[in-house]
Design a protein around this nucleic acid. Structure first.
Lengths: 306, 306
DNA sequence: TTGTACGCGTTATCAT
DNA sequence: ATGATAACGCGTACAA
C-alpha cells in the first residue's frame, strides 16, 4: 500500500509481462475487409465500446479482402496472444477461404459477423438479409411499382445469395415475372451501382424501381440517374441496404433497410466475451431482423407515358 | 537447425516475450478522433501499408475527440510498449489539450498529422490549408463569382483558422469586401453543412458560391440546396475540401481541394520509422501542397435576375 | 500486511 | 554450430 503511493511517480505497468505470465493479452483481434467502408466502421465502434467495458482493447486488421493477408494477420494476432478474434463481413463461399477458421476456432474463441461457416460450431451474428430484401421489394410493390430490378453483388458471397433469395421470393409472392436483365451482379460499391444502373436504363423496358444490395450501390445508381438528366425518385425509385450514416445525409435521403451495424458489433462482442470468460459455453448464433427506413428516394409509381 | 525443423509442428512465436526482453513491441499506436470519417481512414491506410513494410503493426485508437479518452489510450499504448505514436487530426488550440503530448514526446517517438504544437520539436506532416482555401476562392472568382461564402468549422481548431486565413487573404487579393454573415462556423460534418447553407440562403443577399472546410460539409450543403428545389451547380456553386473517395461518387461529383490523405499517412509513417531506427534524428516537419480537383459542383456565374 | 522465490518465452552472452 | 544461463517485469504462492 505504502509502496504503491511511492511508485506513482511515473510508473507504467508492463502489459507485455502481464500477458506473458497469463498467456493472454487483454486484446481482441478484429479482422475487417475494408476499413473505409462505413458499415464496417460502425460495426467496429459497437465492438470497441463493448470491450472497453471488459477492459479489453481492440486490434483492427484490414485485409482488403485478401485471404493471404487474413492469414498473416491471424498469425500475428496469435503471436500476440489475443483473447479472441472477430471476423467481420461476408466471406467467399469457396471452402478454401474459410477452412482455416475452423482450425483456428479450436485454439481460441472466434466469432463471425454477417456470415456463417457450415458444419462448424463457430458463433456468429448476422442479419436476416433474405427477409430485409423481401421487405424492400414488397415496399416498392405497395407503392405501385411492378418493374422492380435488383442491383446485387457477386454470387460467390453468401450475403448476395441471401439477397437474391429474398428478391426472388418476393417476386413469386407478388406474382411478378422475373424479367431478363433485371438482376445485375456488380461491385458492391458506388461505381458498381453506377454501372449497373446504366445497364438497367439501357434495357428496352427499363425498371421503374431498384433494390440495391448496399447503400453504396444505391448512391452510385442515383448518380447515374441524375447525370442522365433524370430524377430520383420521380423517374426512378431506389432502395439501399444497411443504413450507413451517410444515407441520411445525401440528396435524396436514401430509403433503405436498416441492418443495425453498431448493435451487431455490440452483440457479437458480448457473445465473444461470454465465450472467453467461461470457456465451457458453446458457440452461439444469432440472427437479427432488419427494419425498413422510409426516406425520400422512392415515389409512388406513375405512368411516365401519360 | 535440426531443432527448428522439429518445431514446425504448430509453433507460434510469442511476441509478448519477445517484447519483454527488447522492451518494445513491433507496434505503432495511431490515435484518431473518428474512425468513421473517411478522410482519417484513408490516412490510416497510408500509415498501415508503410509500417507493414517495416514489420510493424498498427494499433488504432478511436478517441471520439475526447482528450480524456486520448490520455487513457496513451497509457494503454505505453503499457504495451509501442515503438511510437501518431496523432491524427487537428487538435483544440487550448494548451491543456496538448501539453501532455510534449511530455510524451520525451519518452518515445511521436508524430502529428494535420497539426503542430508550438514551441515543441514534435514532428508533423500537414497540408498547406491556407493556400488550398485561397486557391478555392480564386477558382470561384475566375468563374465569375463575387459573392463567395465560407462554411467553416470551429475556430478552436487550427485547421479552421488556417482555412479562414486563406479565405480572407483571397478576398483581400481579389478586392472583395467581406459581407456580414458570409462566414459560418459550424460542425464539420454533413449536418453542419446543411444548417450552414440554410443560414446562407436565408440572407437578404445570399452568396452564389460557397467554399467548405470539408467534403462532408459540402455534401450537407448541397443537400440543402436540392431540398429547396434549387440546383447545384446552376443555382449555387460548392467547393469541398480533402477529396475523400466519396466526393467523386455522389451527384454532382464534388469539386474539391485534394489533401492527399493516403500520401500524408505514408510520409508520416516514413518519418516516424526513421525516428525510431536512429534515435539521434531530430524531429521533422513537413508541409504538403494541395491541388484543386475540378469536377461538377461549380458553374460559371450567371445573373439569376436576368 | 509484507517479503521472497520462481516461472512465463524470448533474446543476448558466454562457453563449449 | 550448438548448449547453458541470465535477464526482462509481472503474477502467484507460500512463508514470515
Amino acid at each position: 500500500v505504502i509502496a504503491a503511493i511511492i511508485e506513482r511517480e511515473g510508473y507504467i505497468p508492463n502489459e507485455l509481462a502481464r500477458g506473458l505470465t497469463k498467456n493472454t493479452s487483454a486484446m481482441i483481434g478484429v479482422v475487417i475487409p475494408d476499413i473505409n467502408n462505413t458499415f464496417f466502421s460502425a460495426v467496429l465502434m459497437g465492438i470497441e465500446n463493448e470491450f472497453l467495458k471488459h477492459g479489453c482493447n481492440t486490434f483492427v486488421c484490414n485485409t482488403h479482402g485478401q485471404i493471404r493477408k487474413e492469414k498473416e494477420y491471424i498469425d500475428m494476432l496469435l503471436s500476440r496472444r489475443v483473447a479472441g478474434i472477430i471476423f467481420v463481413g461476408t466471406r467467399p463461399i469457396n471452402k478454401d477461404a474459410s477452412s482455416h477458421l475452423v482450425d483456428l476456432a479450436t485454439r481460441l474463441p472466434v466469432m463471425l459477423i454477417n456470415d456463417t461457416i457450415e458444419n462448424s460450431d463457430i458463433g456468429y451474428v448476422l442479419t436476416n438479409e433474405e427477409k430485409g430484401m423481401n421487405d424492400a421489394v414488397h415496399y416498392l410493390y405497395d407503392l405501385g411499382h411492378r418493374r422492380i430490378a435488383l442491383l446485387n453483388g457477386n454470387q460467390a458471397f453468401t450475403t448476395y445469395r441471401y439477397k437474391l433469395n429474398g428478391y426472388r421470393r418476393a417476386m413469386k409472392e407478388l406474382k411478378l415475372s422475373e424479367k431478363v436483365g433485371y438482376i445485375v451482379d456488380t461491385e458492391p460499391y458506388e461505381k458498381g451501382g453506377y454501372e449497373g444502373m446504366k445497364k438497367l436504363r439501357a434495357l428496352s423496358v427499363p425498371p421503374t424501381a431498384v433494390v440495391s444490395a448496399s447503400d453504396q450501390i444505391a448512391i452510385g445508381a442515383m448518380r447515374e440517374v441524375f447525370e442522365s438528366g433524370k430524377n430520383v425518385p420521380n423517374d426512378m425509385s431506389v432502395v439501399g441496404f444497411s443504413n450507413i450514416p451517410l444515407s441520411n445525409e445525401i440528396y435524396p435521403r436514401l430509403t433503405t433497410v436498416d441492418q443495425y451495424p453498431q448493435q451487431t458489433g455490440k452483440l457479437t462482442a458480448q457473445l465473444l466475451a461470454a465465450q472467453i470468460e467461461n470457456k465451457g459455453t458453446g458457440h452461439e448464433g444469432l440472427r437479427m431482423d432488419t427494419t425498413m427506413v422510409i426516406r425520400a428516394s422512392c415515389a409512388p409509381y406513375r405512368d411516365l407515358k401519360a
